[in-house]
Amino acid sequence: MDVSISLVIFLALAAMAIISSLMVVVGRNLFNAAMFLGAYLLVIAGFYFLLSAELVGIMQVFVYVGGVVVVLLFGIMLTSQMINVRLVSALQQRVLTLVVVAALVGLLVSIFSKTSFYYISSAEAPRDSISLIGKLFMTDYVLPFEVISVLLLAALIGAVIIAREEGRQ
């Protein structure tokens, strides 16, 4: 019998991922939805750890849980009209929604059918993944790395400008 703890953990994480992502969509309270989104992103980090991709998993926690979700919660709490509002959304564009959903489902099914799930690389996970990743960033992937830096800088400056203009009014 080949029941390892990784399988048990994987099944538990998968169940948690499905439940929490469903709660994000189904919930009517915005704050709760944001909390479940945070839980879901943590579970994804758990998957990365399970695949011994520690750096990616930690970055997931750092950027998504510590950054994105916290900023989302800030936004909800500072928008006073958003607290305690039960969002009731009515389906308004029925045809368009159906088209988009059908396209998305089609895309997912086509990806699902093309992927072979039984391929597991026999290679050992690299022991020192950080220095490998660092070297790749500075050699093969230096252009995307620099482009992302410029993009983040632009976003930073844009945020400062928007904040200053609001302060003046």
């Binding site: 943590l42 930690i58 750092f62 849980v65 510590g66 950080i130």
Partner: peptide, 24 residues
């Protein structure tokens, strides 16, 4: 962990969510 240093810096950011939860 071989990423231990980032780990100890990243985990407290979950605590920030806990602080906001307590306040809200």
């Amino acid at each position: 962990l071989n990423v231990g240093l980032i780990y100890v810096l990243a985990i407290p950011s979950i605590g920030v969510a806990g602080v906001i939860m307590a306040g809200f």
